[in-house]
Nucleic acid binder design. Structure first.
Length: 978
RNA sequence: GCCGGAGUGGCGGAAUGGCAGACGCACCGGAUUCAAAAUCCGGCGACCCUGACAGGUCAUGUGGGUUCGACUCCCACCUCCGGCACCA
């Protein structure tokens, strides 16, 4: 029987680990701790994907290695189990999402256990368990109870100083006028400052489906399912004030050990920009607006009065009604502002629209309201806009400039209004050219400046001259007293002068928006929030929270999941006793019916793993302090931005409120690369038959059309035999003119290239799957699957088995070559080199090269007639993190009665590694011309002598002058000759 | 367009500035076998030269540069992948 039999071995050891709780983790670490975390999966109905075990194996190897190094390792697993697919399944079949979810979890759990990961399964959690989401709701209440004090200065435990911190809402200073207006005014004031707040936000409402759709379910304004029209309607939504934390989320990226590329993605997403806010005078409300390019005497007086009032009172915190507040990163171009643009949704549009322009403006605004942001950016290649009829006064030169509305200005960024400087902004330039607005250059490009491709693309001809926009930095001109200043200096100067005059101030803006935190779904966490109702049963806008001891707020018992046909969430159909109650003071209350998005549960699960069964706190303080932060976090790059940003945000809020001990949750982050399907060879043939239904070169195919003839083509799978390599391309063997496509694609059901881990394990075993996924290439690289590659590593494991066990007999026993004899010097050196390399590679997560080293070891040892036990045992330990089942079995066969999971990791002795003799490459002018063997520690003179004694070298050196010799001990000797 | 990342044999990949292609796959040859599977041994970048032994030249996307020496460092460009995309 003694063939390598993964089925028997793997089942045996998985049962052993489970029964002996081999990987159970103590509540608090003993000695040095290590917290290694996988991004927990969404348990989809398709079961495990081969992409999952990639990261999971990498973390498992790391964990097993560090346990053997004596660390206490926390390595948990759980389920991110709320989500849309289960709900859609419920709509289709009537099956409760909970049922679907728990069935899928069962499949995932079985599959993960089948792969032999050393999780502490006693810590398993699911975001859908009431005992889990009880604390998700509790954290939401913390957000609800927090306001952001942007001015608070504090010092963190590293001694770094920060500005801005979340504080209890009870500590929010209440302005005296608010306090004077009574308790309700105070409550509303507080509500307006909480980190969790409500707003009206547009949702994708699909009347035909009778439900609200997520952005990814809408394609070109139609529903993904059924292709029905989707409209955007405003709905009351919950938002989280993540923008308050933008600066800290940005600057703290500097202290975490993450790939630079991921940090860059987050930086771009946060999108910090520095500039100035500037107020443009439009006249107090009620007064007629400026409608000409010059001010009349009344208006001049009013403008002068406004200026002097500002000069004494300073720049108001909030925008006042007599001016338009704009944000610009280029305050140095104020003198070149020739018009203003408001977002169509800007609150001042009505006020500034004159009677003659009203029809046009209204039509434009209505049109814009139908477009999603995506449509606005995608379709708006051509700029559109409408003049309001009014003018605003430029504070630096008193010039009135026309105010337009256009959808290229977004209401959600900055102040929703801009000053347009067409000469120095490409978007403004395009708009100005289209609507024939004046263009005034105020920045002189540096000498020798060559316009960029973008700038050139926008250039226009005026009176036979070419005019080109210039968006870079240069020297000021046409800017009165500022002429001659460099852009940077100008910005500083004018910003501080505007500040003294009360007409502007320095400002920072972020691309990051507040987080839309509610969904109109059933299968999510309910909010622990009640809305107060008035006597008519209408919401007053005031809220109450569930008390901590009333959590969790569980989902109501519902039996049908078909959309009810109104935009309100499905929970609006919940039973009355779930929806309503009367408070002790007699106030009628209605429950919040939105649910939280899927992100909520995954924002803090790493904390719950530390203390998963705690019934009195989301995590015990001492345990949190002992285990956090996560030392290594591995997962897919698709979560590079949102999940990681949202988690960091929640963690910082919890930190500010004193619930966790550090302000960053994940110290080291690694993204595993995607695993693609097997490489495919694809040729293209004319699809329309025609007279010659021949092949088309892949080069000239675009979107299934031959670009040369415009005839449609279709893809045809080719076998390796039909194709040959020619130059850099693959071509048809039958016709070398026809280039064939060779690439691997993302695995997908529709392409039919999905690899099922169950089948791989069935055929080759879990150890082979684990080993193959690590051997494919660097963890972080994208790489194609190859079934014969699995076969390769499986052969290696079988070879390991044969090296140790005797296959010639029926029972399982040691191979006779395995003997208790002292190893040879070569064997010892090989072992220690292997230990050194594997240890270094595991530390660096270079698992592919570690496996190569172990293969080399086995290739050398397997052929030997005597295989000393003293070199095989350390080798089995080296292999054990990678192929734990086989290693345990071999360990037992070698006579051990305990699991090897906590055996000390083998050490190497540097003294053993020293080779007595070294082979030296001898170079002449950088080319290797010969090799010599000399003592490893030889002096240069010895090496030189040996090299000159070599016949070939001597021949090469004959008649030449040696001008330099470079000697790298043990590696090479290089002659530079003339 | 902008921001990242990557281009090395037929394929996956390896190489602190120091012998390019470790290790694996595929393929070819041999051993074993009645035969096959499995296993074991050997070969395997391209081109030139040779009867053979040996040897030579060119090769890490392209073109330059630094260096005694470059896959590795610098500059420019090309291609592919990922992200963002009117953010003032």
């Amino acid at each position: 029987m003694p063939r390598y039999d993964p089925k028997r071995i793997e089942k045996k050891w998985q049962d052993f680990w489970e029964q002996n709780k081999t990987f159970a983790v103590p509540a608090l670490p003993r000695g040095e701790k290590l917290y290694v975390l996988d991004m927990f999966p969404y348990p989809s109905g398709d079961g495990l994907h081969v992409g999952h075990p990639e990261g999971y194996t990498a973390t498992d190897i790391t964990c097993r290695y560090h346990r053997m190094r004596g660390k206490t390792v926390l390595h948990p697993m759980g389920w991110d189990a709320f989500g849309l697919p289960a709900e859609q399944h419920a709509i289709k079949t009537g099956t409760h999402p909970r049922e679907t979810t728990y069935k899928n979890i069962g499949t995932f759990r079985r599959q993960l256990k089948m792969l032999g990961f050393s999780y502490d399964w006693d810590r398993e959690i699911s975001t859908t368990d009431p005992e889990y989401f009880r604390w998700t709701q509790w954290i939401f209440l913390q957000l609800f109870d927090t306001w952001y004090d942007a001015d608070l200065v504090w010092t963190d435990h590293h001694g770094r100083q920060h500005v801005g911190k979340g504080r209890p809402i009870a500590e929010l200073p209440i302005p005296s006028d608010v306090a004077a207006s009574g308790a309700e005014a105070v409550r509303r004031y507080q509500d307006a400052h909480r980190l969790a707040y409500q707003t009206e936000a547009p949702v994708n409402w699909c009347p035909a489906l009778g439900t609200v759709l997520a952005n990814e379910e809408v394609i070109d304004g139609k529903s993904e399912r059924g292709n029905h029209p989707v409209v955007r309607i405003p709905l009351r939504q919950w938002m989280l004030r993540i923008t308050c934390y933008a600066d800290r989320l940005l600057s703290d990226l500097d202290v975490v050990n993450w790939p630079e590329s991921i940090k860059q993605l987050q930086r771009n997403w946060i999108g910090r920009s520095e500039g100035a806010e500037v107020d443009f005078y439009v006249g107090a409300p009620g007064l007629p607006t400026v409608t000409k390019t010059t001010l009349d005497s009344d208006q001049s007086r009013q403008f002068a009065a406004w200026k002097s009032a500002r000069a004494s009172a300073g720049f108001p915190k909030a925008q006042t009604e007599d001016c338009l507040r704009i944000y610009t990163t280029r305050p140095d171009t104020l003198f070149g502002a020739t018009y203003m643009v408001l977002a169509p949704e800007h609150p001042y549009v009505d006020r500034l629209t004159t009677a003659t322009q009203k029809a046009q403006v209204d039509a434009y605004r209505q049109q814009a309201s139908f477009k999603s942001d995506l449509d606005r950016t995608d379709l708006a290649k051509d700029k559109t806009g409408v003049f309001t009829g009014s003018y605003a006064v430029n504070p630096v030169n008193g010039a009135p400039v026309p105010v337009w509305i256009a959808d290229y200005v977004l209401i959600s960024y900055g102040t929703g209004a801009i000053m347009a400087v067409p000469a120095h902004d490409l978007r403004d330039w395009e708009f100005a050219v289209k609507f024939q607005l004046p263009i005034i250059p105020v920045v002189q490009p540096p000498a020798g400046y060559e316009p960029s491709a973008e700038e050139l693309a926008q250039s226009r001809q005026v009176d036979g001259r070419t005019e080109t926009p210039f968006a870079g930095e240069g020297t000021a001109m046409g800017s009165g007293p500022y002429d001659g200043l460099g852009t940077r200096e100008f910005k500083q100067r004018i910003t501080s002068e505007l500040t003294t005059q009360g007409m502007g101030r320095k400002a920072v803006n972020f691309r990051l928006r507040d987080w839309l935190f509610s969904r109109q779904h059933f299968w999510g966490e309910p909010f622990p929030i009640w809305h107060e109702l008035d006597a008519e049963g209408n919401p007053t806008g005031l809220m109450r929270t569930d008390a901590d001891h009333e959590l969790p707020v569980t989902l109501p018992a519902m039996t049908h999941f078909k959309p009810h046909g109104r935009p309100e969430p499905p929970l609006a159909e919940a039973p009355q006793d779930w929806l309503f109650k009367t408070a002790a003071d007699g106030t009628r209350l209605a429950r919040e019916t939105n649910t939280m998005p899927q992100w909520a549960g995954s924002c803090w699960y790493y904390l719950r793993f530390i203390d998963p069964r705690n019934g009195t706190a989301f995590v015990d303080r001492a345990k949190e302090q002992a285990w956090m932060p996560v030392d290594l976090y591995i997962g897919g790059a698709e979560h590079a931005v949102l999940h990681l940003l949202y988690s960091r945000f929640w963690h910082k809020v919890l930190f500010d409120r004193g619930h966790v001990s550090g302000d960053e949750p994940f110290n080291r982050l690694v993204n595993q690369g995607m695993i693609l399907g097997e490489a495919e060879l694809t040729g293209y043939q004319f699809a329309d038959g025609g007279t010659e239904p021949g092949w088309v070169s892949a080069r000239q195919v675009r979107n299934d059309v031959d670009t040369a003839t415009q005839r449609p083509v279709h893809a045809a799978r080719l076998t390796a035999e039909q194709v040959v390599k020619k130059g850099n391309d693959f071509v048809l063997a039958a016709d070398h003119q026809i280039v064939v496509e060779s690439r691997a694609f993302k695995m997908s059901k529709s392409r039919g290239n999905v690899i099922n881990p169950d089948l791989v394990v069935q055929e080759y075993g879990a150890d082979s799957l684990r080993l193959y996924e690590m051997f494919m290439g660097p963890l972080e690289a994208v790489k194609p699957w190859s079934m014969s590659g699995v076969e390769g590593v499986s052969r290696f494991l079988a070879r390991v088995w044969r090296t140790i066990s005797d296959e010639a007999v029926e029972e399982i026993r040691l191979h006779p070559a395995v003997q208790d004899v002292p190893p040879s010097a070569d064997q010892v050196r090989l072992l220690h080199k292997t230990i050194q390399a594997v240890t270094r590679d595991v530390e660096n997560l270079s698992f592919n090269t570690a496996i190569s080293r172990m293969m080399e070891f086995v290739n050398a040892v397997a052929g030997q007639d005597v295989r000393p036990r003293s070199i095989l045992e350390p080798f089995v330990l080296l292999l054990s993190p990678f192929a734990p089942h086989l290693a345990e079995e071999a360990w037992q066969l070698l006579g051990h009665t305990q699991s090897l999971a906590y055996e000390p990791w083998p050490q190497f002795d540097p003294a053993v590694l020293v080779e007595s003799e070294a082979e030296l490459a001898v170079q002449i002018n950088g080319k290797v011309r010969g090799k010599i063997k000399i003592p490893a520690a030889a002096e240069q003179s010895v090496a030189e002598q040996a090299a000159r004694a070599d016949a070939k070298i001597a021949e090469q050196l004959a008649g030449k002058t040696v001008i330099k010799i470079v000697y790298v001990a043990g590696r090479l000797l290089s002659f530079v000759v003339k």
